[in-house]
Amino acid sequence: MSDGGTTKFNTGILPSQTLRALVAEGAITASEPILDDQVQPASVDLRLGPVAYRVRASFLPGRHATVKERLDAVEMHAIDLSKGAVFERHCVYIVPLLESVRLTPGLSALANPKSSTGRLDVFARLITDHGTEFDRVEAGYAGPLYAEISPRAFSVRVHTGTRLLQLRLRRGEPSHDDTSLRALHQAVGLNDTAPDQANIKGGIAFTVDIRGDENGLVGYRARRHAGLIDLDRIDYYDPLDFWEPIHRRGRSGIILDPNDFYILASKESVVVPADHAAEMLAYDSLVGEFRVHYAGFFDPGFGLGETGGAGSRAVLEVRAHEVPFLIEDGQVVGRLVYERLTERPDKLYGQGIGSNYQSQGLRLGKQFRRI
C-alpha cells in the first residue's frame, strides 16, 4: 500500500534523487554532460549520439557478441546526426546513445519509448552488448547503450541529443501479486473503477473509450502518406495533415484495419501514486489481434490531483495485426502493472516539471497543435 513516501525499501524502482546520486557516482555516465531535466521522477531520458547506422535488419547481439560486431554484418551506411537527419519510415536504424551505464550486481535497468515517441508510431528499443532481450539491461552490466529505431507511420527528423527512450533502474527483483494490487487500489484508487468491481488479474484492467467526446470524436488514424515530422518542433504541425479523425457513427465499435495506426483513449482515468510507477502491458493475445501502447511507462504522480492530474486518462497507441478487428466500447484492451519505488521521489510527474501529458484526455503527441 502507499504510505505517503515515509518508508524506504531495499528493492524497487529507483526515484529521482537516487538517479541523480548514481550520475554523480559515475554509474550513469555520458559523453556529454547529463542535463538536470533528463532525470524524471523515476527514469532517465536517453539521448541519441552523433552517428546512426542504417541496417538491413533488426537484431540482438546475443551472449557472445557486441552490438558493433553484429553491426559489421548488417550495416548499410552511416548517417551524421550532428546537423539533423531523416529516419525514413519502415527502415531500421541503430544509434549509439550518449549515455552508458556501470551497474552493480544488484542493479538492473529497463527501457521504454518516451510517450511522444510512441504517439508518433516510432518503434524504439534499447540494446546492450551481449544482450538477449530488447529493453533489458542485466544486473552488473557495464558498457554502452544503443537504440534500435524504426519509424512506422511517419518519417521523422532527429539529431544528436534527441530523446526517444527513457531508462528505469531497479534494485533487486520486487514481487508483484494481485492481493497487494487490490489493497493499493482500495487505498488510493488506481482508476475510477470501484474496488469491488475492479478487474485485477496480473495487473488492473483498462478499457477503451469508443463513445468519444461531446462531438463523437473517439480517436485518430495516421494518414498513410503524410509528410515529415521534426521531433523538435513542439505545438507546430496541423494534426489534420497527419491524422484522420475518427467519429462515433451510431454504433458501439470501430473496425481496426490491419497495419494502420490509431490513437485512442481509455475509458478510465489512471492514477499512479507518488511512491509507485506503472507499466502498461504492450500486448496480450487473449484480448485481440492488436497491439496496445508502445510507450507503456507511467511516472509517479501521473493522474494525481495534487500535481494537476485529476481525471488523466491513458492514451492508447493501437496497431492491428493480420486481420481487421472490431474493437467495442468498454472492451478490455490491456492491464496496468504497478511497481513500488524504493522511496518517494523528490519530484513528481505533473505541471511542476513541465510534463506534457498530465490531465490529458484523447491527446496526440506534443508536436501537434491542439484541436
Rank of each mutant, 00 (worst) to 15 (best):
L120E: 07
S115Q: 08
G131M: 08
Q40W: 05
A57W: 09
R171V: 04
Y146S: 06
P61E: 13
L103E: 11
S155N: 05
R54T: 09
D36S: 13
A42G: 12
D72C: 00
R119M: 08
V158T: 02
E32F: 01
L46H: 10
G62R: 10
L120N: 09
G84P: 07
V156H: 01
V55L: 11
T128K: 04
P113M: 11
E75W: 00
K114D: 08
G49N: 11
R56L: 13
Y141F: 14
A42K: 03
R168H: 02
L97F: 01
Q38P: 04
T29H: 05
R152Y: 04
A139K: 03
L98K: 10
R170M: 13
H90R: 15
D80F: 05
R102C: 10
V74L: 13
V95K: 03
E133R: 14
V137Y: 02
Y146L: 06
T160P: 00
P61N: 11
D121V: 02
F123W: 12
V95H: 04
A42W: 03
S108L: 09
R171F: 01
A142D: 12
A139T: 02
I127E: 08
A65Q: 13
R125A: 14
F123E: 13
P33H: 05
P41D: 12
R56E: 15
G106S: 13
V122I: 15
